[in-house]
Design a protein around this nucleic acid. Sequence first.
DNA 1: CACTTGCGTAAGTGATTGCTTACATATAAA
DNA 2: TTTATATGTAAGCAATCACTTACGCAAGTG
Lengths: 107, 107
Amino acid sequence: MRRDVFQAIADPTRRDIINLIAFKPMNLNAIADNFDVSRPAISQHIKILMECGLIDIKKRGRERYCEPRLKQLNEVAQWVERYRRLWEEKFDALDNLLEELKNNDNQ
Amino acid sequence: MRRDVFQAIADPTRRDIINLIAFKPMNLNAIADNFDVSRPAISQHIKILMECGLIDIKKRGRERYCEPRLKQLNEVAQWVERYRRLWEEKFDALDNLLEELKNNDNQ
DNA sequence: CACTTGCGTAAGTGATTGCTTACATATAAA
DNA sequence: TTTATATGTAAGCAATCACTTACGCAAGTG
């Protein structure tokens, strides 16, 4: 069971679940209604999201309300942000390095 | 073959590869030297990263230099950023909603 | 009480993953 | 040309994934 946040959000259904409940908690059946897969399938996705701390579940009678606890996404955000300038600026020091190597050979 | 960016960065080895070559292109063997797994295993990871457009490969003699092309990470960044305020501000409108539901019942 | 509803979970399954070893190919060096 | 180096890729394999159906149980409803 690797079960880190990166792996949790790798599945499109789980991302959709997060999208769905991000600003509005829903119980499990309500969530499952939005998908084509079976309720137990959603239940298993929810379990994974919970184990990663991405959602929290609050019992309310026989219903379980799923709420977002997206603090864990910070890990993803931080990892990605380190490279932002690599794709925003045209950071081509890398091509330069290759060019250098070529030139050294040609000498 | 799903092979989207989210799935590509779900694997820790692939994230490590990106870390490794982010600011300094390396050829495949040099990359493989940094890992415990076999060279072909790394080759397969590289292939996946390339298919996602996360790296680019430049042939140079018999070597292949892997360079970062991290623009694709923008998709991840954008997805994550939508929820930033949900974990940075104490956004507890959700708990409020649950409280409301409870109170409605108690009336 | 019996019945319905909301949910968790076990068991089974086919597909995918990440890895290995073995082999093929292209380029460079001797 | 022979040999070494850098790499891609096929085949096989154990583990994991995402899904299903079937069942069980707790909490409401009649």
